[in-house]
Amino acid sequence: MTGTGSAERILAILDVFTEDHLEWTTEELMARLGYSRPTLYRYLKALREAGFLTSLPGAGFTLGPRVVELDYLLRKSDPLVSTGQKHLEALIDAYPCSALLVRWYGAKLLCVASESSTPNPLSSYARGRAMPLARGAISRAIMAWLPRRQLEPLILANLDEMKQMGLGSTLDEVLEAMRLVRRAGAAVAHGEVTPGVIGTAAPVFDAGQSPIAAVTVTIAGREVTPETLNSIERDVKTRAAAITKALAERRVEARESAGDFAPIEFELERKSS
Rank of each mutant, 00 (worst) to 15 (best):
T238I: 08
A262H: 06
T218N: 12
L109I: 08
L109R: 10
V217L: 06
E176M: 11
L80N: 08
R182K: 15
V67C: 07
P119M: 07
A157F: 12
P57T: 02
A187N: 03
S169L: 08
Q150C: 13
E115Q: 14
I142R: 00
P132L: 02
D71M: 06
A94I: 07
R179D: 14
F52T: 08
N120L: 13
Y95K: 11
P211F: 06
M131Q: 09
A184W: 02
P65E: 14
K237N: 03
G185C: 12
V252S: 14
A141R: 07
T194Y: 11
Y43K: 12
D172G: 05
K108G: 02
R251P: 05
E192M: 03
V217P: 02
D206C: 07
A213R: 02
P211K: 04
L122C: 11
V217Y: 01
V181N: 11
Y35K: 03
N230W: 04
A126D: 14
V102S: 06
D15Y: 12
K76I: 04
L44V: 09
F61T: 03
E27Q: 10
P263G: 09
K76C: 03
L229T: 01
A186K: 12
T244P: 03
V112S: 03
E27R: 15
A202E: 05
V181S: 10
S139F: 02
V67F: 08
E265I: 07
G221P: 03
L73S: 14
T54Q: 13
T18G: 05
L154V: 05
W24A: 08
L100M: 11
S98F: 05
T25R: 10
F52G: 10
L247D: 07
G191D: 02
H87M: 02
P147F: 06
E28F: 08
G191L: 01
L22P: 11
A202P: 03
R37A: 13
G221L: 07
D20L: 06
I142G: 00
L88T: 08
E19S: 09
T225K: 00
G3T: 07
A144L: 10
L110S: 14
